[in-house]
Amino acid sequence: MKEIFKIIPFKSVGKLFFGMNTIEIENIYGNPVDVVEDAILGEKRLIFKFFIAVFIRNKLVEVYFKESNFNEIDVMIDEINIIGNNKRIEQLSQNKKAKPSVFVKGNINFYGYGINLGGFKKTTYYTEKEIIVFSKGRLKFFQDYYLTS
């Protein structure tokens, strides 16, 4: 049975709530498979079986899903399954609150949902598709990064 991660924009992704600390998430999902510290970005990444949890100052700010796990999970928002749905971008874009961006290097941001889709358009920039769900505090980062890249 697939694990379902329902997105509530800027609040939660399944059982994960933005602002949770590493211990709270480990209490739900157990020990991570790996931990990566990024001193340049000031991030700590806990890699779990189905997702990567990104922390800044020990607070959850992003959740990544990689294509290699797409057959074992569903990522949902507004009754749209982002995985396994060839019309996902069209469906998300039709909702005014989604506030889609333009594609940059194979990425599209839905600023109103706090979602970044990478690799869903043909590009050499990505080796696999990914979904990033981000907190409201990361909105400016995603806007700035994808406008200046």
Results as ranks from 00 to 15, higher is better:
25 I>H: 04
2 K>H: 11
129 K>A: 15
12 S>V: 03
10 F>H: 06
38 D>W: 10
45 R>I: 12
149 S>P: 03
144 D>L: 11
141 F>M: 01
76 M>W: 10
95 N>P: 03
77 I>Y: 08
92 L>N: 00
10 F>L: 06
1 M>L: 03
70 F>N: 11
44 K>Q: 13
90 E>G: 00
34 D>A: 08
53 A>T: 10
120 F>E: 08
7 I>H: 04
143 Q>L: 07
11 K>G: 06
4 I>S: 14
142 F>Q: 02
99 K>I: 09
130 E>T: 09
33 V>Y: 02
58 N>K: 01
116 N>T: 06
148 T>V: 15
23 I>V: 10
34 D>L: 07
142 F>K: 00
82 I>H: 10
124 T>S: 13
66 K>M: 11
132 I>T: 09
136 K>M: 10
62 E>S: 03
124 T>N: 14
17 F>R: 12
75 V>S: 12
118 G>E: 03
5 F>Y: 10
19 G>C: 14
89 I>C: 03
130 E>K: 10
129 K>R: 15
95 N>C: 06
128 E>G: 01
70 F>K: 11
82 I>K: 08
98 A>P: 05
76 M>V: 11
59 K>N: 14
121 K>D: 06
120 F>S: 07
48 F>C: 13
90 E>I: 04
55 F>P: 00
12 S>R: 02
45 R>P: 06
93 S>C: 00
46 L>F: 09
1 M>P: 02
14 G>N: 13
74 D>F: 10
55 F>W: 01
122 K>E: 02
78 D>K: 15
19 G>Q: 15
139 L>T: 02
61 V>F: 03
87 K>W: 06
101 S>R: 02
37 E>W: 06
65 F>L: 06
111 Y>S: 00
132 I>N: 05
26 E>N: 12
65 F>E: 04
21 N>S: 09
106 G>R: 02
115 I>H: 05
138 R>A: 01
104 V>G: 04
6 K>W: 13
111 Y>A: 00
139 L>R: 02
125 Y>F: 12
64 Y>S: 00
82 I>F: 09
55 F>M: 01
71 N>F: 15
109 N>S: 15
74 D>M: 12
32 P>S: 14
5 F>E: 03
33 V>L: 05
93 S>N: 00
